[in-house]
């Protein structure tokens, strides 16, 4: 099972081929992501904004202005954006291979490339969306400057990595078991993005804490406000252990099922 290219001086190094494929895919994906439908770029912003707006209406409606000691608007924006950093990357990556089937007639493009490039693009887009939302909150007089930017970056990157791992795994599994794609829908409630985990009764709270997304999202909030009552078990190593484990499993699956993925 082997196929090699060697074209001497005219040939390009495999790494250069991969980089040029990533670059080409990135431009192509960003075009389709932002401009394929009418005002597609507006929906990028609208979805988290909508979730934040109605949850904010509910929370202020029940007179909850603070959540774990933090301004509820900031609590929601950070939680939602952190969660979307995972979910957007994961769901875009999940569909990357099936959406790009046509490209695999160029041998330079591998299935795993499309997932990685989509994750990169979604990560950057989500970063921009977060900045805009925070800027909007600042206009309303909320304190949006993180006290520990490094913690925020570390946690957000961990969430991005988990999203990438999820995308790598599920883009393979969706070809085998299509229902896997629906799992992601349950995660918003279970990860503490819109519901404080500390308010969940025992013993269920202990089960939820096993979810690495809970740790990532609470770490982002803690980075914004050091006085935030985060879950006491908060652990970034747990987040990264999950991320690296999923990444490794995803890459193994990608290598193993490469051929099947290329012509589903």
């Amino acid at each position: 099972m082997d196929a090699t290219d060697s074209v001497g001086a005219a040939g390009r190094h495999p790494l250069r081929v991969t980089l040029s494929v990533w670059y080409a895919l990135l431009l192509r994906e960003s075009l389709t992501r932002l401009f394929s439908r009418r005002a597609a770029w507006a929906w990028l912003m609208a979805e988290p904004l909508f979730h934040i707006a109605y949850m904010l209406a509910i929370f202020t409606g029940i007179r909850a202005y603070k959540m774990g000691g933090v301004d509820v608007a900031i609590w929601l924006i950070t939680g939602m954006c952190a969660f979307f950093m995972f979910r957007r990357v994961a769901s875009q990556g999940q569909n990357a291979i099936s959406a790009n089937q046509a490209l695999f007639s160029y041998r330079q493009v591998l299935p795993v490339d499309t997932v990685i490039v989509r994750a990169l693009l979604e990560g950057v887009l989500m970063l921009l969306v977060t900045c805009v939302l925070l800027a909007g909150a600042a206009l309303f007089g909320h304190d949006v400057v993180p006290d520990e930017p490094l913690l925020v970056i570390g946690a957000a990157f961990g969430l991005w990595l988990i999203g990438l791992g999820w995308g790598l795994i599920t883009s393979v599994l969706c070809g085998l078991v299509a229902e896997v794609g629906n799992l992601i829908g349950f995660l918003m409630l279970l990860s503490g993005a819109i519901m404080p985990i500390n308010s969940i009764p025992q013993p269920y709270r202990d089960y939820l804490i096993l979810n690495p997304l809970v740790h990532g999202i609470d770490a982002v909030r803690l980075g914004f406000a050091p006085y935030y009552h985060a879950i006491p078990e908060l652990s970034l190593p747990l987040l990264y252990a999950w991320a690296l484990g999923m990444l490794a499993l995803g890459l193994i699956l990608q290598v193993h099922y490469r051929e099947r993925l290329m012509h589903q």
């Binding site: 082997d2 196929a3 051929e259």
Partner: peptide
């Protein structure tokens, strides 16, 4: 190079 052989090799 779009597809890969189950066994054997192809060199370009």
């Amino acid at each position: 190079g779009v597809d890969h052989p189950n066994r054997g090799r192809i060199e370009r």
